[in-house]
Amino acid sequence: MDKVIEVKDVKTVFGTRVVHDGLNLCVNRGEIYGLLGPSGCGKTTLLREIVMLQEFHGGSIKILGDELNGISHSKAQKLRREWGVLFQAGALFSSLTIAQNIALPLVEYSDLSQKMINEIVEFKINLVGLKSADANLYPSQISGGMKKKSGLARALAMDPKLLFLDEPTSGLDPISARDFDSLILKLRDLLGLTIVMVSHDLQSIYDTLDRIAIIDNKKIAFEGTLDEVASAKSEFIQTFFSDLK
């Protein structure tokens, strides 16, 4: 299996606080990979480093074969079109409607006609389980769950190979959360996505993830499948999972 993301010996320091020290992990093509760990262990920070929002202070991160250290502007731009990111609260552009939000990457990066773009937007809106009637609402007029779905639709607008989700089910009611999980599984099968997500939702972890990495004490405490976790000897991992339960 080829590796989509390779993180090697990454070190992160905030002021005097060391967040990661010698962190390693790799994500294979086509899998749903989860970053887990106690609050404040730096899951979201790692995710932000992978999507080039934050600098790391040592080691290397390789995405789709490109090394992020000293990456050129054009390569970085190319990389950014190959992934989609869903932020915790959706991060929709508040001055644009949902449809305009989803259309934005298409308008900016492609030379498609407005008609074609509208069709793509309609497809994505329905794909993530929103109604076409909601398309012309502004982000301030819709619920948290709808914001997440719209954010996902926007992340999928350019048909990315890689999808990053930051706590996709947090703040959703259990039914919407399960819907979201099945949506993610469906998307992976339909579009052949590789998905990396940060999650605290145990049900969602068991339902969707192929492999997980548990971050603790600045390092990866465990990396592997969920079945392997059950047999892992480490006391921390066992308490972490029993805590989650």
Binding site: L53, R80, R81, L92, S94, L104
Partner: peptide, 9 residues
């Protein structure tokens, strides 16, 4: 929103 913009290039 700024982060979202950056990740979209």
């Amino acid at each position: 929103e700024l982060d979202a913009m950056r990740t979209m290039g």
